[in-house]
Design a protein around this nucleic acid. Structure first.
Lengths: 163, 163
DNA sequence: GGGGTATTGTTTATATGGAAACTATCTGGA
DNA sequence: TCCAGATAGTTTCCATATAAACAATACCCC
């Protein structure tokens, strides 16, 4: 169904680019709502799961990631990572380890409880993702990825944090 | 460039559906950052502009929209609209008008200042949108819209506010 | 080796998002 | 009529996001 119908707009879109942009925007909103509902049952948010997944799969040799690395991989700024890690630390799912040789940095690492939580949630989350993307064939998913990569290519990805 | 390279991941994606989903997610993040930077010069946020645009183009006969209507068209819940309208009202860009015959409702209406702000910003924003979507031809933009509509079709759009 | 500069993380302020619970009002049915 | 349930808006609490400014530390270059 078209976005204008889904949103029950009184007037249709007048501009193709605008409609395309809003389709990307509202599809993300829809995905985040679905994911949010899913994670509630596990006491997590989608963003918290994402951070835990980065620690599990992107940490080199189980050494975790620094907050700057997390910030870059999640496309959010450093203050935001401070708060995310604070909450996950309070929940007992991650730990801040000192970095020998650089007293400015932390390595954020999964705790045992964090690993167990990931083991509990992960499989079911990938099932949800597959269900959400199931209307598209593998070829169509690759097509979608290609189109979105070309959109992000415009004007460079010059959105690094100015700070 | 692939998402894994953009985010400088140490390990590539292992799952096509996951990669597609994250491409949608991070493209929205990228779009919102670009739009946010653009609107800063005008003292607005992207969300505030969206609300003003709905009032300008979706209000029937210049009567504005109720907060429930705004909530549905923006895919956010009612408490959120209260805050958005509060801020725009404080900025003098919108007004809450009484609805004759239903004392529970407001009609949110653009003020003169709101109309002037829209006139100032709108054209340049559509230029930005066209630039952002310019890597795709019209046909490709329609293709993108079609793929995203089919994703949102999965499992119905049953994400109405439970409340 | 010492001083300017860059980097890492934090704090504070504000905007946007959801959930739950509340008030006021409206509507439909016995 | 009147009362039960639905609807509109708000309040409160919390999570996530940005920007700006700061402290501590590291680095580079003369």
């Amino acid at each position: 169904m078209s976005l204008a119908s889904e949103l029950e707009l009184n007037q249709p879109f007048d501009d193709l680019s605008h409609e395309a942009l809003l389709n990307v925007y509202f599809t993300t909103s829809w995905i985040k709502k679905m994911a949010g509902q899913f994670f509630q049952a596990y006491g997590l948010t989608d963003v918290q799961f994402n951070l835990l997944a980065l620690l599990k799969y992107q940490g080199e040799e189980k050494a975790g990631l620094t907050q700057v690395e997390l910030s870059r991989m999640m496309l959010v700024n450093r203050p935001n990572v401070t708060g995310l890690v604070d909450r996950l630390e309070r929940m007992g799912l991650v730990r801040r380890d000192a970095v020998p040789g650089d007293r400015r940095s932390n390595r954020v690492v999964l705790t045992g409880a964090g690993e167990r939580k990931m083991a509990e949630v992960e499989g079911r989350y990938y099932e949800l993702i597959h269900t959400m993307m199931s209307p598209l064939s593998a070829g169509e998913q690759r097509q979608l990825i290609g189109l979105l990569e070309r959109v992000r290519g415009a004007l460079g990805r010059g959105t690094e944090e100015p700070d």
